[in-house]
Simulated assay, not measured.
Amino acid sequence: MQLTIQKMEVYYNNQLVGYLEMIDEDTIAFQYDTDWIKKGFSISPFSLPLSDKVYISNSPYFKGLYAVFNDSLPDGWGEFLIRRMLLRKKINFEKLSPLVRLSLVNQTGLGGLEYLPKQKKDQINETTDLDLIAADINKELNNRTDGLSLDNLYKLGGASGGARPKVHLKINNEEWIIKFAAINESSLVGIEEYKANILAKECGINVSEFKLFDSKLTKGFFGTKRFDRIGDKKIHVIALSSILETTHQISNLDYIHLFQVIQKISVNPDDLYEAYRRMCFNVLYGNKDDHGKNHSFIYDEVKKGYVLSKAYDITNTIDKLEHEMTVNGSGNPTEKELIEVQERMQLSKEKCLSIIENIKRVINNITL
Rank of each mutant, 00 (worst) to 15 (best):
E9G: 00
D35Y: 15
K38I: 09
S44Q: 11
P45S: 05
F46D: 07
D52K: 13
D52H: 10
P60D: 11
F62R: 12
A67V: 12
V68H: 11
D71V: 15
R84L: 12
L86I: 08
L86C: 09
R88T: 04
L96H: 07
V100M: 04
V105T: 15
T108G: 14
Y115K: 14
K118N: 09
K118C: 14
K120H: 08
N125V: 06
L130T: 01
K155E: 13
K155F: 14
L156Q: 15
K166R: 12
K166I: 01
K166D: 06
N172E: 13
E175Q: 15
K179Q: 06
A181G: 02
A182F: 08
E192D: 13
A196Q: 04
A200G: 11
E202Q: 14
G204R: 07
V207I: 12
F221V: 07
T224F: 03
E245A: 10
T247F: 01
N252H: 01
N252C: 08
D254K: 00
V261S: 06
Q263E: 15
S266A: 04
V267E: 03
P269S: 07
D270Y: 07
Y273D: 03
E274Y: 05
R277M: 05
R277A: 04
L284R: 00
G286T: 02
G292I: 00
F297N: 00
G305L: 05
G305P: 05
I314K: 03
T315M: 06
T315K: 05
T317I: 07
E324V: 03
E324R: 06
G331A: 04
T334A: 06
K336P: 05
L338D: 02
V341Y: 00
Q342L: 02
L347G: 02
K349P: 03
E350I: 10
C352T: 15
S354D: 14
I355C: 06
I359L: 14
